[in-house]
Design a binder for these strands. Sequence first.
RNA 1: UGGGGGGUCGCCAAGCUGGUAAGGCACCUGACUGUUACUCAGGUCACGCGCAGGUUCGAAUCCUGCCCCCCCAGCCA
Length: 430
Amino acid sequence: MIAYIEDIAGSEGQLVTIRGWLHNRRSSGKIHFLTVRDGSGFMQCVMSKQAVGDELFTPADHLTQESAVIVHGTVRADSRAPGGYELDVTGLEIVSEAQNYPITPKEHGVDFLMDRRHLWIRAPRQQAILRIRHEVIDAVRDYFNSRRFILADAPIFTPAACEGTTTLFPVQYFEDNIAFLTQSGQLYNEANAMALGRVYCFGPTFRAEKSKTRRHLTEFWMVEPEVAYATIDDVMHLAEGLVVSVVARVLEKRQQELKILERDQSKLARVQGPFPRISYDDAVETLKKKGLVFEWGGDFGAPDETALSEEHDQPIFVHGFPSAIKAFYMKPHPGRPEVSLSVDLLAPEGYGEIIGGGQRVDDLELLVQRIKAHDLPQEAFEWYLDLRRFGSVPHGGFGMGIERVVTWICGIDHLREAIPYPRMIYRMYP
RNA sequence: UGGGGGGUCGCCAAGCUGGUAAGGCACCUGACUGUUACUCAGGUCACGCGCAGGUUCGAAUCCUGCCCCCCCAGCCA
């Protein structure tokens, strides 16, 4: 019976076949311990010379790391085995032998590993991160789908800047046109929300900023919900529910992976909501009290975000940023136009911003004025202005960066490990 | 783009007040029936130290220029 390692607990005493790769081998002359991985997990397979005979035992003497193998054996519970179960080998087929696998069980530098990312992802830690990434994405989809949001994806080729602030990647679009890779599905989302009510888009996003930090990728995945008739409070409520639900799901389903990563789970367990809601005004005061140099009107840098979030053990909302530092479509606070109905969610433990969003401008005149003030070409936004001409309503939403969430939940120190093949300013290979 | 750190064998890493390239891993041979990055014994392994010049009797080490990477900041999710 062909089995996957993750299902092995139910097969005790049975003869099973595992198809995978040799992760590591330890040998004591008359007994081999073969750690085999099959994509679903790792399992120690025990091969005793006495039990299998020379003709099966000897070829395994020199079996190399990452050689493809098919192992037949009997499942047995054993407290000495890493996974609680091991396999008493009765048969071994070598599918293909690996030669000089470069990633040995010893230490390696980042650059070396990144050049071999296609092989590095076979390592237990990297697998754990990618499994958690999968769980995060699955939980995100479930969250919105179960609330009857409609997935309506925004285009990746776009005709112009959505916000005009950040740098975009231009691509040749047939002979005569230049398209830009999307930096946000935001504007299309708003149109979709006016059609479908509650929507979200979920796809890759591209930013050509020359950022060289551990919090930036040039290609990353973002989920962006948008809701018609939503206020800034609704946006915060939705974001809070999403984050609580994603963290709970990973804690529930990815215990093993969190253990491999040695994540302090008690810190994640505290993420239950409600999240503190701090106004930008109060945040500025807090920073000043803590001795940081900060003037009202500026945007928070990474050290500021860390200083704010370390006051709390849950993610925190900071809302009411100055209108001047936010995108043109952010709605001004009624009666206090210098402040916008915008909100960021900062993850705890110094992980910084994972969500940014707010309520959008719903007034046609104001939006036209804003587009002019930002020196954006109005003709490119006519379709967007139509949303204010034909049944405009209050609405809002946010964007959540998947890799930033995964990085935080995994407790790792760099975004580049939170995606299978990271794209950074100096990294396109493999 | 600024500031800091770094490029020495397939990998990790010492040497860097100039004197002729440690050590570990991997690999090969052998021993070991409960290993957990197994252990132990032996063996192979850099005419060269990111690249190009220069100083010197002598350069991985000092000087000049260039290339690449990492970290921090800015920008943002």
